[in-house]
């Protein structure tokens, strides 16, 4: 039977129909189910960019702080702590920025040590202290957190002032300059 047109055997016909059916249903499913933005920028869903961007930020950022506390930021900009972010010390503050009644977290004095405790791996230009050799009292007795080379003039809160009176006669007085000396002395040995 080698005539023209070729007589296609029925089992092959069924196979062709089956293949067409599978491919056709795949194409139809793909048409309906492929997201509209797939391929907008590349082989991925373009809308994913917006979805990832739609999350709410947790940290408010220094600009948000500047809206109300510009005087603190001006003070900060004058001193050695000018590169610090507000939320580095005061904690996550987007809720406070949205509603000033919600106060940011108060930081303990030990927070200063997080950055300023002597560590052999810290760069030599960075001011470091060995806390046990430096001073036994509170950091804020000698350093204003917003401008650390200045000695605070304003009276301390009542509970802190009471503690200071107990500590002051015992511990030796140190001037702000001591921080630099201590930092340099400690780091001089390690290149």
């Amino acid at each position: 039977m080698a005539g023209f047109p070729l007589k296609i055997p029925p089992q092959i016909n069924r196979l062709i129909l089956l293949t067409l059916g599978i491919v056709g249903s795949y194409l139809i499913a793909r048409y309906f189910l492929t997201p509209a933005t797939f391929g907008q920028y590349g082989w991925y869903r373009g809308a994913a960019l917006e979805e990832i961007a739609s999350r709410t930020p947790v940290y408010a950022g220094k600009l948000a702080c500047d809206e109300c506390h510009s005087e603190k930021l001006e003070m900060l900009a004058k001193g050695k702590h000018q590169t610090l972010s507000c939320e580095g010390c005061h904690g996550v503050s987007s809720q406070h920025a949205a509603n000033p009644d919600i106060l940011p977290v108060k930081m303990a004095g030990s927070h200063c040590i997080r950055c300023h405790e002597q560590n052999d791996s810290r760069p030599t230009w960075y001011k470091q202290i060995v806390v046990k050799d430096h001073y036994a009292g509170k950091c804020r007795e000698c350093h204003m957190p917003h401008n650390p080379t200045e000695v605070p003039e304003e009276p301390q809160p009542a509970d802190q002032a009471a503690k200071e009176e107990k500590q002051k006669p015992e511990s030796p007085e140190k001037k702000p300059g001591a921080v630099e000396k201590a930092g340099k002395a400690e780091k001089a040995e390690v290149p």
């Binding site: 961007a53 930020p57 940290y59 950022g61 600009l63 590169t83 610090l84 972010s85 939320e87």
Partner: peptide, 23 residues
């Protein structure tokens, strides 16, 4: 790391850059 995509698309810096005390 998404480069804090929800922050940079709003004109904020990524959280790690915002918080780094030494720049």
């Amino acid at each position: 790391c998404s480069l804090c995509y929800h922050r940079i698309t709003r004109g904020l810096k990524p959280a790690c850059v915002e918080i780094c005390p030494t720049g």
